[in-house]
Design a protein around this nucleic acid. Structure first.
Lengths: 152, 152
DNA sequence: CTCTCTGCAAATAATTTGCAACCCC
DNA sequence: GGGGTTGCAAATTATTTGCAGAGAG
């Protein structure tokens, strides 16, 4: 990763995103930034969002470009997703304390229906292949990395 | 939702998925089912996975077809995603107990880097628009719906 | 028989990428 | 000036959908 430059479009995207209370998609952001920089392209928005997230200056809320995966085992269990290859593993036998739904409901104004927790990690195969100094954060939201204790 | 028929392809997909310990993507599943039903199309696989998940007979692990969303606010907080419109809201001020990373690591064989938790709910706007008896589970993984207490 | 389902192919949608011009450092 | 960046357009990828024929009930 070489030196990152400060361009008009990058600054506009960052400033705009910081000024918003919402969590826009790339397309929404593009429409908004366009008011100030009418010629900015969607591709540039994507490239900058990626760069900024990779730097940790903004946060990317999951999903984008990951295929859906399916599980035929209905027993309750958690999942771990490999940051390198996307593979998903199972975590059976883990008991976590319940979360009170009233609190997030009050804080957000949403009617809370449930919640979802998944672990982020590196699968055995990818770990083996990890010799070169791989890039740090993929930029995708991955809350904490507290050794021994994770902030859900 | 009318009566669902029992077809050869649907049965094969379900049986195959149940027999697997992995969490295949639709394409991977398609390749596998094809060994038994060489003429089955990818479209049929998608349609059946969706139907089965909607019925709760299999589980769909997030992502597919949701656009990425971005957040310029780096202060630690959680998110709620609206099941109806996809909008994302913030949950500030929620303190949850940490999760021990050793346990999931041991259970899965993965090197655990972090975890991610997001709430699922209905945003104020969609709730207002909710008069008709909307369809229940979208099929997408949403762990528990314990009133007052959510299983993370 | 009647509908739901299937295979096939074309259509969407989100995101990525190749390339020549551009402009930040 | 040199190399990261941009706009544009074409390319990928994942998933959806229209349609006519097939097959489950």
């Amino acid at each position: 990763m070489t030196k990152m430059r400060q361009t008009r479009q990058r600054a506009a995207i960052l400033e705009l995103l910081r000024s918003l209370k919402s969590h826009p998609t790339a397309a929404e952001l593009h429409a908004l930034v366009r008011k100030r920089l009418p010629r900015i392209s969607l591709g540039t928005v994507y490239r900058n969002l990626d760069a900024l997230a990779r730097q940790g200056r903004i946060r990317k809320l999951v999903s984008g470009r990951a295929e859906a995966r399916f599980d035929g085992d209905l027993r309750g269990h958690y999942h771990v997703r490999c940051t390198d290859c996307g593979r998903v593993g199972d975590v059976f036998g883990l008991e976590l304390p319940n979360v009170d739904s009233a609190e997030p409901g009050r804080a957000s104004g949403f009617e809370i229906l449930g919640c979802r927790l998944e672990f982020i990690g590196v699968c055995p195969e990818c770990r083996r292949r990890r010799t070169s100094p791989h890039d740090p954060a993929s930029g995708t939201e991955t809350d904490a990395r507290v050794p021994g204790g994770l902030k859900p």
